[in-house]
Design a binder for these strands. Structure first.
Lengths: 215, 215
DNA sequence: GGATGTGAATGCATTCACAGCA
DNA sequence: TGCTGTGAATGCATTCACATCC
């Protein structure tokens, strides 16, 4: 199995396939074809098969894919067949919402501790997760073998937080601060900028208007 | 100016250029080169110039780009040179966090009303935004000329909400529900799945491990 | 010298089309 | 017949390299 040469877009789609398969599984479906799996996601059947092919053989010609084992294999590829403990840095509005979000656990992510620069928040529980002062970060990270963290602090402190997390040995951060955090050879970074998402939508909507002028 | 033939990745980068330029502007910088603009974002100088070229001429050979006018033009292209009023459907944890998020306004997005299936939430204000029962959606949409909405409801009601928004004349939705919402010719969709973002990070971190095995 | 704008060349991702299997 | 897996072909995005201008 080749380790690299995998298109990044394919990895992104893998997550969507998995999500869709979990829906099918919940609906009791046992088998699925590449066509069926793709069309709910706006992806061609060839694309689905090619994406899987980067990682090995998954299906049975003439039959399709068995839902349950396919889910297992995708989870293994994505690394979510075991639980990841995750830190949340920043217990403001966004951080608090993430701490209360129920969708992470069933995907294999457990938010185990939150940190905030405002020491008066220490001792609180948000969504069942304890909030600590910043200087407890290293201790907690080591204790729970943490490798992932979510950054939900203001833009002006995001880089400092990232540096600190890297120093502690964190390997991946999901960055919600609206500022670029450059990845390093030992720190993977994935960014979500909420305002940018709306901005993209704004562009798309303007395009729609130009194609079919307002009625 | 050609209307299409624009790579979607280029549009995404445009938002990041804009964000970076706003940072430079806040720091008092007046001019910037494609190289300087790109390197903070991990993008080559040629890429920056090519991205701009899809939309026209922006700079001065030998000189670079003027920060202020470039910002104006990017905002115009992205459609954020005027304010968009936005609805938020779903006032649970995530919806409430979005309603309190301060980053939207300075980007030209004003969240003007929230809606929740739980009618007992009606009358509340979250982040200064009033919460209404669902059946007020159409009235508010017309009154404020709304074209964009954020979906922050559970997966099982997301499609119904999207259909309703489309019927009301909404043209773009930002979907936070972990389920695919297919776009239509009159409704643009942009999706953010928080768990999927962590999943992608999980994959990337596992890759790092394989390149440089744990110390 | 230092920078943009842009055709040409490259490289990457998607789609096609079909051999092979159930 | 129905469907996967996959080399080949296509198409799209990025990078190169250079003419042009300050």
């Amino acid at each position: 199995m080749k380790l690299n040469g995998i298109p990044l877009p394919a990895v992104k789609r893998l997550s969507l396939y998995l999500r869709q398969l979990e829906l099918l599984q919940a609906g009791g479906q046992k088998r699925v074809s590449s066509r069926q799996l793709g069309e709910s996601l706006g992806v061609t059947d060839a694309q689905v098969r090619k994406d899987f092919a980067y990682f090995g053989q998954f299906g049975h010609p003439g039959v399709g894919y068995q839902v349950d084992p396919l889910i297992q294999r995708l989870r293994h590829i994505l690394g979510t067949d075991k639980v990841w403990n995750v830190l949340v840095v920043g217990a403001g509005n966004l951080g608090r919402a993430l701490l209360q979000y129920k969708g992470f656990v069933q995907k294999g992510f457990r938010l185990v501790a939150a940190f905030d620069a405002d020491a008066s928040k220490a001792g609180q529980f948000v969504g069942g997760v304890p909030v600590f002062p910043m200087d407890e970060m290293e201790r907690m990270a080591l204790q729970f073998h943490i490798r992932l963290a979510i950054i939900a602090v203001p833009a002006d402190s995001a880089q400092a937080v990232a540096d600190r997390l890297a120093a502690i040995g964190i390997q991946g951060v999901l960055n919600f601060a609206p500022i670029p955090l450059p990845p390093t050879p030992t720190l993977a970074v994935n960014a979500v900028d909420l305002a940018v998402q709306l901005e993209q939508l704004s562009f798309q909507v303007n395009l729609l208007d130009q194609e079919q002028p307002a009625q």
